[in-house]
């Protein structure tokens, strides 16, 4: 029970969350409205890809967000391991399903983009393959949380799993790129870096911001729920103890 004397921290968090939540939610909605308008109606059809270029505006931000969430998860896990901050492992845990959803979306939209571009739903393109592996890392992380009953152990072990996965992400990315250049040199997804035209780049960035803020909004809410759930468990235990 000594652990819950640290509950001052989560209480502070709840205050911060209460203040931030409406703002973040509002910004998310605005960004989505603007982003969708830009990407569906303003952005011109691409010279080569025609209208299918619009898939990029939901595909690429989802992939970005998937990677970003894994980074958040790994950083929270590091904080949880090093400082034993009670909020950190909750942060990592509640980020995982959101990241899984983003990664899943990047895979599905990637496959749907592949059909018009390559004539087949799935091509073992380097980026798609890396995202697939990331998807598996998310699944493994969530599975380990579920498999271990003792919540303290589950938190520690899944932090370790997240960190090891995070160290591996760049190595996996590098190896998949290497493998891909061996087998198929050209990739449709390759864009010409900064040469990309602003009419495409701006909607892409707005959608990227929208996905990031969506994550922030959902994560704040999920965190609050986890904190409340722990409080609830404490109260139920205390009540059961009284009788």
């Amino acid at each position: 029970m000594a652990r819950f004397e640290k509950f001052a921290n989560p209480t502070q968090f709840l205050r911060l969350q209460g203040f931030l939540q409406p703002w973040v939610t509002a910004i998310t909605i605005i960004l989505f409205v603007v982003g969708l308008y830009l990407s569906l109606f303003v952005a011109p059809a691409d010279y080569q890809q025609k209208e299918t270029v619009r898939i990029m505006f939901v595909h690429v931000p989802a992939a970005w967000a998937g990677l970003m969430v894994y980074t958040v998860m790994a950083l929270s896990s590091a904080v949880a391991i090093i400082f034993r901050h009670p909020l950190a492992d909750v942060a990592a845990k509640s980020a995982a399903p959101i990241g899984l959803a983003f990664t899943f979306l990047s895979l599905v939209t990637g496959a749907l983009w592949g059909k018009p571009m390559w004539g087949t739903y799935w091509v073992w393109d380097a980026r798609l393959t890396s995202m697939f592996v990331l998807f598996l890392l998310y699944l493994g992380y969530m599975a380990i949380w579920q498999a271990i009953e003792d919540p303290h152990r589950a938190a520690r072990i899944s932090s370790i799993v997240a960190l090891v996965g995070f160290i591996n992400v760049p190595i996996i990315k590098f190896s998949v790129d290497w493998w891909n250049t061996l087998h198929q040199p050209a990739s449709v997804f390759k864009m010409n870096g900064p040469a990309i035209s602003p009419s495409i780049l701006i909607p892409l960035l707005v959608m990227g911001a929208a996905y990031s803020f969506l994550f922030l909004a959902l994560h704040l809410l999920a965190l609050k729920t986890e904190v409340n759930a722990r409080k609830l468990r404490q109260m139920q235990l205390a009540e059961a103890g009284k009788v």
Partner: peptide, 21 residues
């Protein structure tokens, strides 16, 4: 435009998954 169904499918699936989440 050609492939419009794929484009719409992407947006709709994204919307559905994010709304469910």
């Amino acid at each position: 435009a050609p492939h419009m169904n794929f484009i719409l499918a992407c947006y709709i699936i994204s919307a559905v998954v994010l709304v469910i989440l």
